[in-house]
Design a protein around this nucleic acid. Structure first.
Lengths: 210, 210
DNA sequence: CGCAGTACGTGAATCTTTTCACAACCCAGT
DNA sequence: ACTGGGTTGTGAAAAGATTCACGTACTGCG
């Protein structure tokens, strides 16, 4: 199998969501053109993205919606449950805990950690907040697949280290800091402040120009 | 001025943060090599990124930390205050409202909107929650520069439309949906679910392989 | 001063991603 | 069975981003 770029995966994720909409609308077949239009991509890109994983379409007709959904579901690996540990029970952690899109896509938060002794022992829904010191055993017990970091920037790296130590192989980082993890561990970042800075850059540039 | 890629801007944002750390550590000069190492980039990339905006370094010595910080600050446009309107006073909105990294970088939330009549009229710190119907006048009055969308996916596009209608030229979207805005309006997306799916893709792929 | 060492800035090369463009194919209608 | 309209899958070209590698310039030391 060739190497597939991150952007292709991101787009597949969009396609997946849009295809569900098309399915709800009762559409049976869809062309790369229609899909591209809603996804904000080009038809060629849609076809290229899909062709990385096989040939799913019918020439002259397009793609069978139901079929394509199930194919992408399986490519993305969201045809099974994923067990997530959340570290950081602050406001961001709380927002993530109750974020419906996660559950909808079979990501289940099965453990929450926070080093604040006032929070440890409390419950969020049916999940008890534990202290990060117990991460290793809890991660093992609850078969955690994915770690989510929602702590302040200055403790993020140590949390990541603890996750790696506990055997977690995939980490999603919301802290505003570049993290380093060993090979074999996948790290993705969501950087909210950075995106705001991109906006201010564009606005500043445009203002200077005219 | 040549075209500068989004990735360069993202990296500048990292550099900016790291340079502050170096400044705190009392470092006066820094080389592209040191900066790259902490940023997880290559020295050539650091130099290339910076060279898009001028020549800031001294051959044989590196970059003067204080100077580079102020240059990047001005490139990114974070040397002034930005006034932000937040739409969506749910958990995510609440997390964003109190997110310290925003304020630290001179992004100030000066208006909050939510269509839930139970929330309208309440205060978050010193900001009153208003109804989106009043967006246009409030945005004008409070001189809002940037809109942040933190509502469920199915209302995100209509919120974006309202923002555009109110004259907002830069939007940061947290909803899990591709939005369309007219030319002249800058849109950035933060897509948390998508990043989780990238993780599940990688984990699935690796499992299949071995 | 002269020289060795260092590190920037950048043209050219390489690598990656996107777009183009077309052969191959399917379907429907006749 | 044949034709015309439509759409995929993909080789090849184009565009874009990263890395290499080296000329140049500055520092510090003897």
């Amino acid at each position: 199998m060739q190497k597939v770029s991150d952007w292709t995966i991101h787009r597949l994720s969009s396609y997946h969501r849009l295809l569900s909409e098309f399915a709800n609308e009762g559409k049976e077949y869809i062309s790369s053109h229609e899909l591209a239009q809603r996804a904000g991509a080009t038809p060629a890109q849609v076809r290229r993205d899909l062709s990385c994983f096989g040939t799913f379409g019918t020439k002259g007709k397009g793609y069978l919606v139901a079929d394509l959904i199930s194919k992408i579901t399986s490519i993305l690996g969201i045809d099974r449950d994923w067990r997530v540990a959340l570290v950081g029970a602050g406001r961001l952690g709380s927002a993530l805990f109750s974020y419906k899109e996660f559950r909808k896509r079979n990501f289940h938060i099965v453990a929450v950690f926070d080093s604040d002794r006032h929070k440890v022992g409390k419950h969020w829904a049916d999940v008890q907040i534990d202290h990060p010191d117990d991460m290793k055993s809890i991660v093992r017990q609850r078969k955690v697949d994915i770690g989510v970091i929602a702590v302040p920037a200055d403790t993020a790296q140590s949390v990541a280290n603890a996750m790696v130590d506990a055997g977690i192989k995939a980490i999603l980082n919301f802290a505003h800091r570049k993290l380093f993890v060993p090979d074999g561990v996948t790290l993705r970042n969501v950087n909210m402040a950075m995106e705001l800075e991109t906006l201010s850059y564009v606005m500043t540039k445009n203002r200077t120009r005219r």
